[in-house]
C-alpha cells in the first residue's frame, strides 16, 4: 500500500502523505529520492542518484524526509479502520432527496431518470405525501439540528405548488421542533420566471442549474420531446436567476459525454457567460452507448482536465476567476476522517422519496424495486438495506483500501458501482481514474493559492 502520492503540476513537485493529510512541496532532489525511499537504503539511493546529485545533497534530503517521518507527516500509518462505521451507524436521517416530480419537460438523452419517470409512471408528489416525508425526516433526525431537503425529479418546478407548500410546512415544523431545515433544488431552468426565481433565492440554501456548456453541446443532449434544443430557451433564464441570487450558493452544472471530450471549452464558455460556480460531471453510462465514456477515452480526458487546470490557474486572482466544483479541496481542515471514510451516507443518513412515498437509498436507486426500503407512512425501514450500505466504505470497497485518494473521494458513488457491476463494493475504474486526476489538480490549485498567500503576506 502506498503511503505517499507524488506528482508534478505547473513545475511544482507535490507530495501528499496519504494517511495524515499533510501536503509538501519538495525540490527535484527529494522528489527523486522518494522514488526509492524507504525500500532502498542510503547506499542504494546514492548508487541510483549519485550521477545527478552530490552525496551531501542526498544526505540532506534524506535527513529532512526522516525528520518529517518522525513527526508523522510522511509515510504515516492508516489507523482509521475502526472509525469506518462510526458516522453512518448512528441511525439518524439527516437529508432527504424529495422527488416531487417523476415527470420532466425535457427529454435529455443521457437522463439516468429515464427522461424523468424513473422507468415508472409519470407522476407528481401530492402535498400529503410531501408533508409526511417532512415529518419522517424530523422524526428520524435524532439530535441532529440542521436537516436538508433537496427538491429533485424529474423537473421539480413542474410541481412548484408542492415545493412552496413543503417549504412553508417544513419551516413551521422545524420551528416547533427546534430544528433548522435547509432546502436545495435542482432544475433545468425551463420554468424559471422572476416570481419562481425570487422564491428559490429567498428559500433555497443552494440551487443547481443544469446547462452543458456551448450551444451545440447542450443541444445535442438536452432537448424537448420534439427534439428542439434548449440552450436558447434556458441560458438567459439561468443568467437572470444567478444575477438575482447575489452571493448565495449556486452551481451551474453540466454533464460531459464522449461527444465533448473537449469539455474544458464548455466550462470556459459557462465562465465567460458570467457564472462563478461551475461543475461538469462525466456521464455514467454503460459502454455500449455511443455517448458513454470508455477506458480508451481516459488519456484524452486527463489531458482535458490539465487544460482546464492551466486556464483555471491563469484566471486566479483576476476578474475572470471562477470556482470549479472539483478543483475545490480543503487542505486546512475539511471533513473529519470518519466522514471521509463513508462518503454520501446513502441508505442511512441520506435517503430519497418518490411521489408514492417509497423510500430508496438515494435518487440513483429510485425505480429499482430491489432497493425499496419502505414508505414514509410506515414505521419501519428495511434495516437489511441500511446495513448493506453501512458496510460500503473505503476499507470494504475493492481497490479503495490501497488507493492514495481514498480520504478525498470516500470510495466514489455506490450507485455507479452497482450500475456497472451489480456490486456496491465494486470499483468503477473509469470514475476512479477521473477522480484521481481531478484531485491532483485540486490539491495543486490549493498549493498555488497558499504559496501566493504566503508571498503576499511577506510583501505586506
Amino acid at each position: 500500500m502506498s503511503r505517499i502520492h507524488k506528482f508534478i503540476k505547473k513545475d511544482i513537485p507535490i507530495v501528499l502523505d496519504v494517511n495524515s493529510g499533510a501536503v509538501h512541496v519538495v525540490d527535484r532532489l527529494v522528489f527523486d529520492i522518494l522514488d526509492y525511499y524507504p525500500e532502498a537504503d542510503c547506499g542504494q539511493i546514492m548508487d541510483k542518484l549519485g550521477g545527478r546529485y552530490k552525496t551531501e545533497e542526498i544526505e540532506e534530503g534524506l535527513e529532512e524526509i526522516r525528520e518529517l517521518e518522525g513527526k508523522g507527516l510522511l509515510f504515516s500509518e492508516d489507523r482509521y479502520r475502526d472509525l469506518a462505521e462510526q458516522v453512518t451507524g448512528s441511525g439518524v436521517v439527516k437529508s432527504l432527496c424529495l422527488n416531487v416530480a417523476h415527470d420532466c419537460n425535457m427529454q435529455c438523452k443521457y437522463c439516468f431518470a429515464s427522461q424523468g419517470h424513473f422507468k415508472g409512471t409519470r407522476r407528481l408528489m401530492d402535498k400529503d405525501i410531501a408533508f409526511r416525508a417532512v415529518d419522517f425526516l424530523i422524526e428520524r433526525s435524532g439530535d441532529r439540528r440542521v436537516l436538508e431537503i433537496d427538491f429533485f425529479g424529474g423537473e421539480p418546478l413542474m410541481n412548484f405548488e408542492v415545493v412552496q407548500a413543503v417549504v412553508e410546512y417544513g419551516n413551521q415544523r422545524a420551528k416547533n421542533t427546534g430544528k433548522k431545515l435547509r432546502y436545495t433544488i435542482t432544475t433545468n431552468g425551463l420554468l424559471l420566471d422572476d416570481s419562481i426565481t425570487d422564491f428559490i433565492n429567498q428559500n433555497m440554501y443552494n440551487v443547481v442549474l443544469s446547462l452543458d456548456g456551448r450551444r451545440e453541446v447542450n443541444d445535442r443532449m438536452r432537448r424537448l420531446a420534439d427534439g428542439t434544443g434548449t440552450y436558447d430557451m434556458i441560458v438567459d433564464k439561468i443568467r437572470r436567476a444567478v444575477d438575482r441570487r447575489g452571493d448565495r450558493m449556486y452551481f451551474v452544472r453540466g454533464t460531459f459525454t464522449r461527444c465533448n471530450l473537449d469539455f474544458s471549452k464548455d466550462v470556459m464558455h459557462m465562465a465567460d457567460l458570467g457564472f462563478k460556480s461551475i461543475s461538469v460531471e462525466p456521464v455514467v453510462e454503460r459502454e455500449d452507448n455511443y455517448y458513454s465514456i470508455r477506458e480508451e477515452d481516459l488519456e484524452a480526458i486527463k489531458q482535458e482536465y490539465d487544460r482546464l487546470f492551466h486556464e483555471y490557474c491563469r484566471r486566479l486572482g483576476t476578474p475572470e476567476e471562477f470556482e470549479f466544483y472539483h478543483f475545490k479541496v480543503s487542505l486546512r481542515q475539511g471533513p473529519c476522517v470518519a466522514r471521509r471514510l463513508t462518503g454520501c451516507s446513502a441508505g442511512n443518513q441520506y435517503l430519497a422519496v418518490t411521489p408514492e412515498g417509497d423510500i430508496y437509498p438515494c435518487h440513483q436507486f429510485v425505480g429499482d424495486k430491489d432497493f425499496i426500503m419502505g414508505n414514509v407512512f410506515e414505521k419501519k425501514l428495511d434495516r437489511g438495506i441500511s446495513e448493506r450500505f453501512k458496510g460500503v466504505h473505503v476499507y470494504n470497497k475493492e481497490n479503495c483500501g490501497q488507493c492514495w485518494a481514498r480520504f478525498y473521494c470516500s470510495g466514489g458513488c455506490h450507485a455507479n458501482s452497482y450500475k456497472f457491476f451489480g456490486d456496491l463494493n465494486a470499483c468503477y475504474k473509469v470514475g476512479c481514474e477521473m477522480e484521481k486526476k481531478r484531485l491532483e489538480c485540486a490539491i495543486a490549485v490549493q498549493v498555488i493559492r497558499m504559496l501566493k498567500e504566503e508571498q503576499n503576506d511577506k510583501t505586506v
Binding site: V15, D17, N19, S20, G21, A22, V23, H24, V25, V26, D27, L29, V30, E60, G61, E64, I65, E67, L68, G72, L73, S76, R79, Y80, L83, S95, C97, E148, D150, V329, S330, L331, R332, Q333, G334, P335, C336, V337, A338, R339, R340, G343, C344, A346, Y350, C362, H363, Q364, F407, Y408, C409, S410, C413, A442, Q446, V447, M450, L451
Partner: peptide, 21 residues
C-alpha cells in the same frame, strides 16, 4: 528545511471529529 516545504499539517490525524475533501 531546505528541500521540503510543508504546506499543511496532519489534518486527518487532528480530525480524529448528500450526493469529498
Amino acid at each position: 528545511m531546505k528541500h521540503i516545504k510543508t504546506i499543511n499539517e496532519a489534518t486527518l490525524v487532528k480530525s480524529v471529529g448528500s450526493c469529498v475533501g
